[in-house]
Design a protein around this nucleic acid. Structure first.
Lengths: 241, 241
DNA sequence: GAACTGAAAACTGTCAACAGTTCTCAGGAA
DNA sequence: TTCCTGAGAACTGTTGACAGTTTTCAGTTC
């Protein structure tokens, strides 16, 4: 047979997998706030499934660093100390700087042209609306990592970006570096196009430093979070007011 | 009270969490072979638990890249194509090269001395027995990443190392680069001690290249695995003979 | 009023049974 | 023999109930 397995191509979605995606969206959308506890029975009935598949999804998202589980107390939407955010940015640097090096020697001219085109498209949309601003920022970086054609690297980058996205949702005021960021992206693509590795990594380093400073500044509240090598505090729900 | 929460410090282990650790060990030890399917009812009864906690553990290990789950067919111990191994090594390079840069500017002299001491200890043990050989290799690299005091980076490195460890267990013949590796580690520590960043990253790059070549060579079988951007094959169990 | 006590409520961890899908393999047709 | 067929077996996905832990809070004592 030629068009062999039509059925196999569309695997019947299981509740467990679907719930995982829904939950992730809810967390990243802010439908559940950082620090908040997930009530299994309430959530399960809201999603109209039983607790089994829900718990499996929770376990998976815990592994992704979006939730933190505490024995016999439940799963909490993860919160980030200032230090943890710095750590995540360092991890992001590790991934994206290496991506820059790989892309510089590996991506085709056409691919880089496409990236450039995407950028100017984004730029025009930002000049016009300004509204969303940041999603594109992350999008560009993930697109860049995709150009390495390394799926393991890409998956790792996606995970870090998701965590940073969640961390960002803890900020009261949103950092509006969108316009500046696009310019920096543009410069980067130009240098990549010229295959100047050292200059490209230098640009990326500075760009990520800016991004981190902006994120940390927007965070404000938790001071330094903890000592230089302190322990992460238990993510208890903080319900002030 | 001074020694406040004794109970809280030792969280009653849940079957789910314990199973996760046991299963991971079983996979990395080779008790379950790469490509093999995990039979939920059989495994659950063997571990003397019910399928619920087992399934949660499986979901978690799937997230760690040690298992691959297929809808309605079960979870399989992951197998790696040649390309996936190369990708993992690139990811490992990203993490460890950045770790080298951070350690160079951040680790104390004392910490680096300790790393050096550990090395010569390992060296003597290898000269004496030669037997285990590789675990130390990975240990050193993880120890190095620990010196960054970046937990996110460390966690990512651990995950990659576990996957590579599993991939290595697919090899018929084991690569015996142990002695050569220790020498390269020694050189690296010396350069780190001298805070020569560029030379350190160069050494690490070469070292990882050697390690990858050795791993790929030991693998042998699956040729190139797949085309340049091909799809990962379904991890069906390959029961020859 | 502030701090302790303990029983009830709420919730997570675990289990056993049911439902739907995939796999196996004997039986039959070409 | 080789290829199909389909009924039964085996297995995964899901559910609802039970068990043990944590939290809550009214009642009590200082």
């Amino acid at each position: 047979m030629s068009g062999a397995d039509q059925k196999r191509a569309l695997p019947r979605n299981t509740y467990s997998k679907a719930t995982e995606d829904v939950l992730r969206d809810m967390i990243l959308n802010g439908d559940i706030e950082p620090g908040e506890r997930l009530n299994e029975v309430a959530l399960a009935s809201e999603l109209e499934i039983s607790r089994g598949p829900l718990r499996e999804a929770v376990r998976r998202l815990t592994g992704e660093g979006l939730l933190t589980a505490v024995s016999h107390r439940g799963a909490f939407v993860r919160t980030f100390s200032r230090r943890e955010i710095v750590e995540l940015y360092e991890l992001r640097s590790a991934l994206e700087l290496h991506a820059v090096r790989l892309v510089c020697t590996r991506a085709s001219d056409e691919e880089l042209d496409a990236a450039d085109a995407m950028l100017s498209d984004t730029q025009s949309r930002i000049s016009a609306a300004e509204a969303p601003g940041y999603p594109q920022e992350l999008d560009f970086h993930l697109r860049l990592v995709e150009l390495t054609h390394n799926r393991a690297l890409h998956r790792a980058a996606v995970e870090v970006h998701r965590q940073l996205s969640l961390a960002r949702s803890m900020s009261a005021k949103r950092p509006t570096r969108a316009r500046a960021a696009v310019v920096e992206h543009s410069d980067l693509v130009a240098v990549l196009r010229a295959r100047e590795v050292d200059r490209a990594t230098a640009l990326m380093t500075r760009h990520l430093d800016h991004s981190m400073e902006s994120a940390i500044a927007a965070l404000g509240l938790p001071g330094d979070g903890e000592g230089p090598h302190g322990e992460t505090p238990i993510p208890l729900e903080q319900s002030p007011s």
